[in-house]
Amino acid sequence: MKLSEYGITNQTATTGLTLARVTALSHQQYTLVCDAGQFFAQVTGRIVNMAMDATDFPTVGDWVQVRLPQNAQDLATIERICNRQSVFLRKVAGRRFNAQLVAANVDWVLSCMALDANFNLRRLERYLAVANASGAQPAVVLTKADTTSTLINQVEAVKAITDAPVIVCDTSAAGIDTLATFIMPGMTYAFLGSSGVGKTTLINRLLGTQAYATNAVRISDNHGRHTTTARQLLRLPSGGIVIDTPGMRELGLLEADVTTTFSDIQALAVGCRFKDCTHTNEPGCAVQAAVGDGELNADRLTSYQQLIAEQATNNQLRGKARENEKINRMFGSKKLMKQKMKAARHKRG
């Protein structure tokens, strides 16, 4: 086993530590590979104590510096996380506003969308906005081409909202070959998408084996159950590297490049009368004029405005969550912090 087979570029390790790449993560249990082989690992106490949120912990795809155990059956210790070249980040599911790392050091983010009843351009725009902010290159993989009778129209609709490569495939050998040709040796590709879009099926075909189980899609709504429950990095026979991730029922925005994703709206906005135009009801709005002329789809403008507002709100609330975590680590709680500040003022007085 050699790290050169896992996409290593210019990473190095300090004296006494070994360079490794995280290949799987499940419930804070890490699996990693290095030139000495495969190890299970845990993070050092220093990482735990210094962490403000999930972004301060390793994730699948990370390059890390580890201290290997004398006995190969024991846990290795992750002591440092190398600088990330790219990172795919989202808000955790539910009402909390913490961040969740999905994958790191990815060359291509493949946003997967099924061409069945689950086809949704607005959801794809959301994935593209996060992919564009990740530092990786975005591409779209349209799956289940054998389930649609409007393939040409759907592909044209996707190409109308993105300049990213669009790959159309199904479960046939020819359909998989199109995707396999796109994946280059030594590069890392993260497959992302909703449950039931067929990510795991595609990866099985690329691997040439049914290594991972797949679940049936519910006929009622064309959604699937989570097949992949743990993120994992896999080497393909072709030499490409893929990261399979659990299906996402929601993709909350934290770091998103809405500007790049909606470059058509940005280009129209240059013609607006006001530089800070919100494209809602301002006079002289070139974007609203484009909607009225049929040049711009009204739903796309609504999606643009919603994503900008959501990102701003989530980032603000995430900042508060990180600040609260900092206070808790320093003082135990906001209440104790206020008590200590009051005592300090009393002492000075």
Results as ranks from 00 to 15, higher is better:
1 M>I: 04
2 K>N: 13
3 L>W: 02
3 L>N: 00
6 Y>Q: 11
12 T>Y: 10
13 A>L: 03
16 G>N: 01
16 G>M: 05
22 V>K: 03
25 L>S: 12
32 L>D: 07
33 V>K: 05
34 C>T: 01
35 D>Q: 01
36 A>V: 09
46 R>D: 11
50 M>H: 14
53 D>Q: 13
55 T>K: 06
57 F>G: 06
66 V>T: 12
67 R>F: 09
69 P>N: 05
73 Q>D: 15
74 D>H: 11
75 L>A: 12
75 L>W: 06
76 A>H: 06
77 T>F: 09
79 E>A: 11
79 E>K: 08
81 I>N: 09
82 C>H: 07
82 C>Y: 10
84 R>M: 07
85 Q>I: 13
86 S>V: 05
86 S>Q: 04
87 V>K: 08
88 F>N: 08
88 F>Q: 09
91 K>Y: 08
94 G>Q: 06
95 R>T: 15
98 N>E: 15
100 Q>N: 10
105 N>M: 04
106 V>L: 02
109 V>T: 03
114 A>P: 04
115 L>N: 00
116 D>C: 04
118 N>D: 08
123 R>H: 07
126 R>N: 01
126 R>S: 00
127 Y>R: 06
127 Y>Q: 04
130 V>S: 10
131 A>L: 01
132 N>E: 15
135 G>L: 07
135 G>S: 03
136 A>G: 01
137 Q>N: 10
140 V>K: 04
141 V>Q: 07
142 L>T: 09
142 L>F: 04
144 K>H: 03
148 T>R: 03
148 T>L: 00
150 T>E: 14
151 L>C: 13
151 L>M: 03
154 Q>D: 05
158 V>P: 02
159 K>S: 04
161 I>C: 08
164 A>W: 08
166 V>W: 08
177 D>P: 13
178 T>C: 13
179 L>V: 11
179 L>R: 01
185 P>Y: 06
187 M>N: 13
188 T>Y: 08
189 Y>E: 01
189 Y>P: 05
204 N>Y: 02
206 L>K: 01
206 L>I: 02
209 T>D: 13
215 N>M: 15
218 R>V: 13
220 S>G: 02
221 D>K: 03
223 H>W: 08
226 H>C: 11
226 H>E: 11
230 A>H: 13
234 L>H: 07
234 L>P: 02
236 L>P: 07
236 L>I: 00
237 P>T: 03
240 G>L: 02
242 V>R: 05
244 D>T: 00
244 D>C: 01
244 D>W: 08
250 E>T: 03
253 L>D: 06
254 L>R: 00
258 V>E: 00
262 F>T: 05
263 S>E: 13
268 L>E: 05
271 G>Q: 08
274 F>G: 11
274 F>A: 07
279 H>W: 03
281 N>W: 06
283 P>G: 01
284 G>N: 05
286 A>M: 09
290 A>L: 06
291 V>C: 05
292 G>C: 10
293 D>H: 11
304 Y>N: 00
307 L>P: 10
308 I>M: 13
316 Q>C: 11
316 Q>S: 13
316 Q>K: 12
317 L>A: 10
317 L>G: 07
319 G>F: 15
320 K>D: 15
320 K>V: 15
323 E>F: 15
326 K>R: 15
328 N>F: 12
328 N>V: 14
328 N>I: 14
339 Q>P: 10
344 A>Q: 13
